[in-house]
Write a protein that binds this DNA or RNA. Structure first.
Lengths: 206, 206
DNA sequence: ATAGTTAATGACTGGTGAGTCAGTAATGTC
DNA sequence: GACATTACTGACTCACCAGTCATTAACTAT
């Protein structure tokens, strides 16, 4: 019929599989949600057989947790890291890097993780704790730190700290949820976040 | 063994069943989410057999849509209605009834509906549209109306309208999501909303 | 080459749950 | 009381899918 193929049917790639599977799973979860995603779909996306998935992840739930942690460490960790090492004035930091960071979150994989946490979180409390400690607590901490610094430098007045750091993030949250639910309905989310930062700065300044 | 029971095994209650089933379904969805809820669970909660559910709702998806619409009309409709008929000054309205409304939303069934929309919305676009028109658009409209009135009366300055009504609701949104994910971690959500309203009023006032 | 190791396959199983429907009994009507 | 109507039951089907495992074939060492 034809010349014998010297192409092997598959290659063994022990090193890369876990990451590839996690990426495929993330894409699948993003599209259909956790419950509606079949392990078979994930395998197809990753270009492997269903069985192989189970060599690297014991259960579907294991895979789920790995996916969330994977996104968290890959994205947020570095971003928050950068942010912590700047030495801008408090005001410039809040208006600059923080605002930029906020603007890009609603369209990032973090939004997908939030969706997954909202729908599946109640059945994975350890995952929720992990996310709280590694993302939320650190994020809020970073903001609080910059407000504190602003007070120390006299840029902000003494009782500026009464404003909870959550207030900075509220419009980001709304933008994220808006996009998750009403993907098509337009909303100038950047404008929203800018207004909030300006408003807060006006309140904080001495 | 005993005196013959004259108690019938069941009563026919054609009128009440649909509502009872919807209530049971809402409770079940709230607890376990849409995908993880079995029709059998819903039936047990409603005190009926599984088969009867299908007499009143053709499919599980039908039931889901009915549940969401049911909650929406029963709760939000009346609330927004009340709000629209007050004749307080703009400032008093925003600080009073609006704030009160916002404070109780994160703990109300609306939060559950939001959770369901976030996780199942993408597969039910018509439901999303329904929700947008009947809740979101009307809610935002009501706020915009009060800001406009404030400008007309000279309470707020001319360009107060540049502030999107979404900004009022952002902390409410954050509080809601926070509770949905981190039910146990405390957060003074009332304080958050109060600060935001005060901040916005400070910006709006002439 | 050859044998040994193990990454990878894919057919299979067991459990589950949405949706069906033949039968039952509550209620209405005369 | 007898008959007709239909709300309601519960056992059943059938498709689907997480997880298993015997087998295959890609790689490695010698």
């Amino acid at each position: 019929m034809s010349i014998m193929s010297s192409q092997p049917k598959y290659q063994r790639r022990k090193e890369d599989r876990p990451q590839e599977i996690a990426d495929a799973a993330f894409a699948a979860f993003a599209e259909k949600g956790y419950a509606a995603t079949r392990i078979d779909d994930v395998a197809k996306r990753a270009g492997i057989s269903k069985g192989l998935t189970y060599l690297y992840y014991k259960t579907k739930e294991d895979l789920f947790k790995a996916v969330v942690k994977n996104v968290v460490v890959r994205r947020v960790d570095t971003l928050i890291g950068n942010v912590e090492s700047t030495n801008l004035s408090s005001e410039d930091f809040l208006r600059g890097p923080l605002l930029d960071f906020m603007k890009q979150v609603p369209g990032s994989p973090i939004a997908i993780v939030i969706r997954l946490l909202i729908s599946e979180g109640p059945r994975h409390p350890d995952l929720v704790d992990y996310y709280y400690e590694n993302v939320v607590a650190r994020g809020l901490g970073a903001i609080r730190q910059f407000v504190t610094r602003g007070v120390e430098r006299g840029e902000f007045h003494r009782d500026a700290l009464q404003y909870q750091p959550h207030l900075f993030l509220a419009p980001m949250m709304l933008s994220m949820i808006w996009r998750l639910i009403f993907a098509d309905k337009p909303l100038d989310t950047d404008q929203l976040m800018e207004s909030q930062i300006e408003m807060l700065l006006a309140q904080l300044k001495a």
